[in-house]
Design a binder for these strands. Sequence first.
RNA 1: GCCCGGGUGGCGGAAUGGCAGACGCGGAGGUCUCAAAAACCUCUGUCCGAAAGGGCGUGUGGGUUCGACUCCCACCCCGGGCACCA
Length: 842
Amino acid sequence: MSISKYDPHVIETKWQAEWEREGLYHAEEDASKPKKYVLEMFPYPSGDIHMGHVRNYTIGDVIARQSSMRGFQVLHPIGWDAFGLPAENAAIKSNSHPAKWTYANIEKQRASFKRMGFSYDWDRDVVTCREDYYRWGQWIFMKFWEKGLVERKSSPVNWCPSCKTVLANEQVLGEGVCWRCKSPVEKRELEQWYFKITEYAQQLLDDLDTLPGWPDRVKTMQANWIGRSEGAEVDFELCDATGEPSGETITVFTTRPDTLFGCTFFLLAPEHPRVKEFVAGSEYEKSVNDVVESAARETAVERQLGEREKRGAFTGRYVVNPVNGEKVPVWVSDYVLMEYGTGAVMAVPSGDQRDFEFARKYGLPIPPVVVAPEDPLADELAGVSERVLADVSWAEAFAGDGTMVQSGAFTGLAGGKASEGMRAVTEWLVQEGRGKFAINFRLRDWLISRQRYWGNPIPAIHCPSCGLVPVPEADLPVRLPENVDVTKGETLADHPEFYETECPSCGGAARRETDTMDTFTCSSWYYLRYSDARNDQAIWEREKADYWMPVDQYIGGIEHAILHLLYSRFFTKVFRDLGLITFAEPFTNLLTQGMVKLDGATMSKSKGNVVAPEDMIERYGCDALRAYILFMAPPDKDLDWSYEGLEGMFRWLSRVWRLVEDAGGPASAATSAETPAAKTLRREMHRVTGKVTDDIERFQFNTAIAALMELTNASYDYRNAVPEPERDGVLTREVAERLTLLLAPFTPHMSEELWREVLGRSQSVHLNSWPEFDPALSAADEAELAVQVNGKVRGKVVVAVDASEETVVAAALAEVQSWVEGKEVKKVVVVPGKLVSVVVAG
RNA sequence: GCCCGGGUGGCGGAAUGGCAGACGCGGAGGUCUCAAAAACCUCUGUCCGAAAGGGCGUGUGGGUUCGACUCCCACCCCGGGCACCA
């Protein structure tokens, strides 16, 4: 039959139009089938799509398409995370409006995604800046408020001077820079809106154990971020300015109550509210203020630069150590954080490296209270309960497990984290009413207000007489006005016609909130909205959400390991507590795909090293690009882009094309007898079916494609080995069909063209069932075994798979006779189907 | 400093404790052709050797095992996350 050329452009556009016409990817609830919700993190409409998008969405598309062939009812939606600063910046640059830029980019990306042949249900798309979406974001805010999870409070916050807005803790990167623009972040004391995510800290930590389908790396990162510490809260009695106990207490959090006897000074954070009062008018005022002011001047970046020396100053005050009644001086130091614990710390220089350095610098005593078993002090101070040694010769603090010394009644107990000494001291404090067991989290409440225009308006009203009042449900949504000119630096706060309003409670004149919500609030629930995206009566219908959710397979970049994934988990738990859903975790399985780089560097427009997918689609078609980006590396690894192999991928697809065209005619009769060559090809077909099925399950798309190449090679071997008249036409057609089916998730257009036009099937290949794999059919009847002598391969034997062990050993020994001759055979190990290992003496 | 990943040919990468380097790229040679392209075929870790064959090889050093890229211990290097969290 005549061979035509594989021409991706014609067939790709043809089938994209046909699928849309047939409504192939429209998802409906169907209780009779198991469902599978496959979701890729939705994109920010930043402009043209890049290789990271191609990789991310191709992975999801392969999973979705194959799941559908395997009989699942598949939901595979897409949308846009459309609010955010880049739109404002672009608008300022082009003297335009953020909405214009955003919608133009969405249309551009929509066209690109369609051109890639992704199997999305376009009837469910979600765009977060559209009113039909953000109104429900405001509704959520209101529900959170009703539940007591919204708070407006003043505290030191992260301020990005370049973005001119505050940021959540999670949005400040490790180097103390803004996650979006990478400018150094400043600290400011501001009144802001918060979601109380800390109320869910324990659940967010505990439920990580219910997620076996998540990478350990991500779970560890989240656990570290939540940062649970077990310890005690200890009350220290404050002395007044004359040094006499005042009856008032200051509480600290510590993970090491067992070291209390070694507490020789007490520290307050520079921002601590009592500091000013303690030193007002005293001789210590100036030196303390110096420390406070220098700390206030520092940015997060400066605070972290190198081995910065700790600074501190004595306040003139004392507190009483509850375990021994000792008066210890109160200092202020810049290494104490106001945001963690109580902003006050008991300092134990012998047990904490920071306290140790501080004590050395300012000449404070360092009495040992927990000593390592191997330390000479362990013998010297064994059983000594009174303080006889006020300082150590150590080079650094000892924070490990050891024995308590110089610790009164607790002397001799084991000391260390979670030690008996720690429990004993805390129990004593509880009895005395001077402390309690306590748990502290590193996680802070989520700061959600942003001083920017292009976001979801916070539905709240400030009333001079009623205070903060939520916008009533009936008045939602608070529409984001269009007449704000960001090119003039305007925000909602510059528009009285927006913020001048009436109090819904008392009817008096009031001011509408002009901050918008963090865009991460928009992306924290979109996956739920897809289950009922067009509902204008409710956020979603419970039945639909219950049918589709949770997401069975979520796919996205590791950069969201904490941010988006933590927030979404939080939202889901709140929705459950609000009775909107019944499950506690939104994403059952998570695949974090690696980044696509160029010469080891992340691609970015500013660096000018962006690889445009369009050019490659133009040259080789999207099927080749899809297959190639999956073939280059396993999905979770970073990938260095290279053009080198793309041509090879196209070459292989052309090879498959010719093979199927050649074999795809009406099946001629099978040859009467099964030849060895036919047997080999048939077996290879079954083996590859099993391998591809298995590899897709494990997301090993690169080896799945390699296996398909092997089947292609085996087909060519058969053709080359058997002259045409003797070929088994039934077999070659079966192999052609099998290749087409197994390739369908990867190269949907080529497979469709081959399936319908060449193989003559009437229905879409994507509606066909995934081929079953029968291990029996892929099993060979003979096996080649390697024969090892003392661990080295010295020969090979071919034996029947059902041969007895004696037969195998005899054949093996004969094969390696020259290596064994005249030596004593000490041991023979037979691994069926693999090898024979002979151990000889000498 | 702490917590995760990862180190395999010229390159991307394969290997439930069982023949290291599948598959692809790149390279060499060949068939076809007036020629080229395309296609098809063969070879391609490294060293010694004409060949047969053999030695050496998965970051380094030890260990377990008949057998280790794989498991254990120590270390080196690269990437990432967190980082004065009391």
